[in-house]
C-alpha cells in the first residue's frame, strides 16, 4: 500500500491522461473533445510538477536557513507548456465558433452528414 501511495501523483496522472484521451476519441461534440484534450495536457503538467517536487523542499532561494530545494526547472518548463496549452485551447475554441457558423452545429456526426450531402 505504501508503494501505491508513494506514487499517488503518478497514478493520478495516468488516470487523468486516460480520461482525457478517452474523451478526445469517443466524444462527438467538438467542445467536449477540446475539454478532453485539455485534461490530457493537464495530466502531463502534473507529471512534470510531480517529478520536480521534493517533500519538505522549498523554492530555490539562496539563504542559509534552507537546505532542501525543489527542482525549479520542470516547473518552469510547465509554465511554457501551460501557455502552449492555453493557445491551443483558444485556437480550438475559435475554430469551433467558425465551424458553428458554417454548419450550424458542433456535433461531429451532424457535420459529416452535411458534408456527405454537399
Amino acid at each position: 500500500m505504501t508503494e501505491v501511495m508513494s506514487h499517488f501523483n503518478y497514478l493520478v496522472v495516468v488516470v487523468l491522461m486516460m480520461i482525457g484521451f478517452y474523451i478526445v476519441i469517443s466524444g462527438s461534440n467538438l467542445v467536449k473533445k477540446v475539454v478532453g484534450l485539455s485534461i490530457f495536457q493537464v495530466s502531463v503538467f502534473l507529471l512534470y510538477i510531480s517529478m520536480g517536487k521534493i517533500i519538505g523542499g522549498t523554492a530555490p532561494i539562496l539563504d542559509d536557513r534552507f537546505t532542501v530545494y525543489s527542482n525549479p526547472l520542470p516547473h518552469v518548463l510547465i509554465l511554457t507548456a501551460i501557455v502552449v496549452g492555453v493557445a491551443t485551447t483558444a485556437l480550438a475554441g475559435a475554430l469551433i465558433v467558425r465551424i458553428n457558423e458554417a454548419y450550424g452545429s458542433i456535433e461531429e456526426d451532424e457535420i459529416y452528414r452535411q458534408d456527405g450531402d454537399a
Partner: peptide
Amino acid sequence: DRRALTAAFTYLVMGTI
C-alpha cells in the same frame, strides 16, 4: 470550402496529441 475548418480542427486535435 468550409471543410477547411473541420480539417484544421482534426489536425489540431491530432497534432496536439
